[in-house]
Design a binder for these strands. Structure first.
Length: 554
RNA sequence: GCCCUCGUAGCUCAGUCGGAUAGAGCGACCGCCUCCUAAGCGGUAGGCCACAGGUUCGAUUCCUGUCGAGGGCGCCA
């Protein structure tokens, strides 16, 4: 049983005994200042107003009741400040945390079942099949995959989907650009100028259909780089497939049936302004062609047949799309809350301290594959997931690549490597760890050890919050902090040695095991590997005074 | 003009349903390996939480406004 449930129950009972109505939820928090105890509640402040009591006095009475019959682990109850009630606990509550973590293991620790039964489709990346993914796509890709992992961890059945816009104007421009380059001409007006067009045109067989060949080429390229980042989609959903299946026509019929569309100037319009959009949107152009919107509405209609909740991950440059999709969803008879949209702000790439502008127009792009090749999949994922997607990210390629040794991902992985190193040493020494049930954990009393256990206790909450707020960076932050706590402990506390008795060694081996589980769970949610060994390259670079081109330019 | 996001240490960023003395990494400076991996640890310096109001016991956090940065406002996707 979580210590907080024990305390909350006790507080409720105590308030009841005092004749005070407890607030809806008794808040319990961990004070930043150790002088304020291990856990603290503000119920006295929160409920004083409603019951017409003085917060401080109510706190004193509450503390007296709790002190008289202390809940498990509690060794002291104090009132501080305006009426905070602070609990001081014996270390035993943290030793229970260790047992809980180990009992749950990699698969069970920080796992929740709150999402059971609610199916979620997470759609992300969904780039046009007109070229390679660029560095900016990487953020949405890593974010979407990690959000999906978080949903799975809290019990949702999850599908990862990639929607392929494999028809329309952009595809034709792409094909025309390939054909032009293959023929040695400049790309047409509004076409694709990227360097890759020239390369791909050179690969293209003379008798190939530029559109179909280019489509396959681009898709294969995108799939390859996503695989390199350990991102696997359950469904690659083709826009074209819905034309053939009649899904688009059926969607339009549905919309007509509920009078969600009207005809004007030869076009068919969606009454999106009736559902919060700035204006109505065209579904069928006056030339009879669909806009991109109608098949996309059909796609969402299809997804709703397969899931209870939809989550779309979009780049900030597609933000304008949100209002019309919400409008379309409502026109289809769903509540707007059934479609959630996560916006990832843009990635500003830097090289040599200078900003690299990303533009498909000019072809000046940094491919995601380049990023992965330079820094590796783990550093790429960790870096993308290091900060909130609500703010723009500065991704300095030179920094992450050339200073790889100082990258936080190595810091975390190194903690894991040290853990496995300890286990190897223990095995080599023939030390047999006592069964956990037979291990006296009360010897774990070093401040560093208690810090580690407190940190572990936070992961289940952090995972739940990260999933609900779609904020995987909270897991990144947590695991980085845990690694810091571990390195500090490692420095101060030895597991084996002449001055460490067997009982302490056993307890510390279990502590290390619990930390291993925490790191494993967190890194898995981030999609980052947890290698058991890491050895520094002997060819240490970075000392070159002037000639710093040892990596070979380009 | 309208909509979205952001503004916290020199730089890059965290900051829990509004809590008590605002944190980390990098950079700077000073220390620590006879010992489970020094890709590590400890310490020092560095802050008007953009600005102005409001809400209340209490605001970096919530609301309004101003200023600043980025993005979006097609019968393109």
């Amino acid at each position: 049983m979580d210590v907080r449930d024990i305390l909350i129950e006790a507080v409720r009972a105590a308030l009841d005994g005092l004749g005070v109505e407890p607030p809806g939820a008794v808040q319990l928090e961990r004070p930043a200042n150790p002088d304020h105890g291990d856990w603290s509640t503000n119920v006295a402040l929160a409920s004083a107003g409603a019951s017409g009591r003085n917060p401080r006095e109510l706190g004193v009475e509450l503390a007296a009741v709790l002190e008289a019959d202390p809940p498990a682990h509690v060794v002291g109850v104090e009132v501080a400040g305006p009426g905070f009630v602070n609990f001081r606990l014996a270390d035993t509550w943290l030793h229970d945390v260790l047992r809980d973590v180990v009992a749950a293991g990699d698969g069970g620790f920080a796992r929740h079942e709150v999402g059971a039964g609610e199916r979620i489709i997470v759609e992300f990346v969904s780039a046009n099949p007109t070229g390679p993914l660029h560095a900016g796509h990487g953020r949405g890709a890593c974010f979407g995959d990690s959000v999906a992992r978080l949903y799975e961890r809290i019990g949702h059945p999850v599908q990862r989907e990639f929607y392929i816009n494999d028809r329309g104007t952009q595809m034709q421009l792409f094909a025309d650009s390939l054909a032009a380059r293959a023929a040695g001409r400049e790309v047409p007006e509004g076409g694709y100028n990227g360097r890759y067009i020239i390369d791909w045109a050179a690969e293209m067989p003379a008798d190939a259909d530029p559109l179909e060949w280019g489509y396959a080429r681009a898709l294969a390229d995108q799939q390859a780089v996503l695989e390199s980042l350990h991102i696997h989609f359950d469904t690659w959903f083709s826009e074209r497939s819905m034309i053939g299946s009649g899904a688009v026509d059926a969607t339009l019929s549905d919309l007509r049936a509920v009078d969600a569309v009207y005809d004007e100037n030869g076009a068919v319009w969606l009454r999106s302004s009736e559902h919060g959009d700035d204006k109505d949107r065209v579904l069928v152009k006056s030339d009879g062609e669909f806009t991109y919107l109608l098949p996309d509405v059909a796609y969402h209609r299809d997804k709703f047949a397969r899931a209870d909740r939809l989550v779309n991950v979009l780049g900030a440059d597609h933000h304008g799309y949100v209002a019309r999709m919400h409008a379309a969803v409502q026109a289809l008879g769903h509540d707007r809350s059934e479609l959630e949209v996560a916006i990832t702000q843009l990635v500003n790439l830097q090289r040599d301290g200078r900003e690299v502008r990303l533009s498909k127009r000019t072809g000046d792009i940094v491919e995601l594959a380049e990023v992965v090749a330079e820094v590796g999949p783990d550093a790429a994922r960790f870096t993308y997931l290091l900060q909130s997607v609500d703010s723009a990210q500065t991704f300095d390629l030179d920094l992450v690549a050339s200073q790889a040794n100082e990258n936080p991902v190595f810091y975390v992985q190194y903690a894991n490597a040290r853990i496995h190193s300890i286990a190897r040493r223990a095995a080599e020494a023939g030390f047999v760890r006592r069964a956990l049930a037979d291990t006296d954990l009360s010897v774990l009393g070093h401040p560093r050890e208690l810090l580690l256990l407190r940190a572990l206790h936070e992961l289940p909450d952090a995972v739940l919050r990260a999933a609900r707020e779609r904020a995987p960076h909270q897991v990144t932050t947590w695991v980085r902090d845990l690694a810091a706590d571990f390195h500090g402990w490692y420095h101060d506390c030895r597991v084996m040695g002449d001055d460490v008795d067997a009982g302490l060694t056993s307890a510390r081996l279990w502590l290390v095991e619990s930390v291993r589980i925490g790191i494993a769970v967190a890194l898995d949610l981030l999609g980052v590997d947890a290698p058991e060994e890491m050895w520094r390259d002997s060819e240490n670079d970075g000392n070159g005074a002037d000639g710093d081109d040892e990596q070979g330019a380009a």
